[in-house]
Amino acid sequence: MTGKKKKDMNHMGYVFVAPFLIVFLIFSAYPVIRTLYLSFTQYKGYGAPTFIGFDNYKRVVTDPIFWTALGNTAKIWGINIVLQLGLAFLLTIVFSDIKYKMRGLSVYRALFYLPNLIAATSVAFLFKVLLDWQFGSLNQILIKAGIIKSGINWLGQPGTAQLVVAVIGAWMWFGNSFIMLMAGVQGISRDYFEAAAIDGAGRWRTFGSIIIPLLKPILLYVAITSLIGGLQLFDIPFLITDGAGAPSNALNTVVLYLYNSAFKYNNVGYAGAIAYLLFFIIGIVSAIEYKVMYGKKED
């Protein structure tokens, strides 16, 4: 009797995971496998896909637009991550320092996180208005302050447009990184700090020898999630430009190119190959990032 009862309970586990599993299989696993299949075919989005082997992959590795898009994405992500992590780190140091005794951490945490809660559409619109080169507030302020003589076309020039997107990304995500880093710092045992203080370690020594090494897992997490998100950059460039990566293709990111290939030009198979190539690139870069941070230990 008791044995039977136990068996029934075990089966209940499947019932509990079923809703997730079904949704996962339909909306995640199936598209992933189907994309892999389509990446080996020529498929216009209608009719039957024709199998063409590795042709799409051969094409994507020699496609100048793909590499330009990857370069743009890397450039934007690079600027973004420096600003985002730099700002988050600075704030973490300020808020975790015992001497400063900063009050109202939870209020600041909420404030810093706020930009992340605004929909990308609103953010894009907001910056479009603020940065308009003829009547945007930023140019007006800079002109009034005498810093520049005539308006800068922030979104109309390749260099500044990339910078703007990177800054928007940093502004949206630094709060998130800050929360992560702060949680990591608070998770470090007070004993280490006390021991360091007794040994006569100064602020920088404590930071370099205690906080940084013990924050590594969190740092790695922040870096990898930011990389994954960063290389998939799509919404802001899509919304802030004409949807095709203007000016001069400077905001054409890999995923924007993928999207346009699939849904604007009906090269669905080719877009599948771009998706898988990007997946491998992210995988490789993540692995390198991991090695760099933990390499010494594993050697």
């Binding site: 992933v32 994309t35 389509l38 790695l220 990898i224 997946f279 992210i282 995988g283 993540s286």
Partner: peptide
Amino acid sequence: KKIMSMALAGIMVLSMVGCGNK
């Protein structure tokens, strides 16, 4: 963690195209 982050990256990227077929 490595495997998880790779899997996460994969799903995030690949769902982009896959969703079109739905």
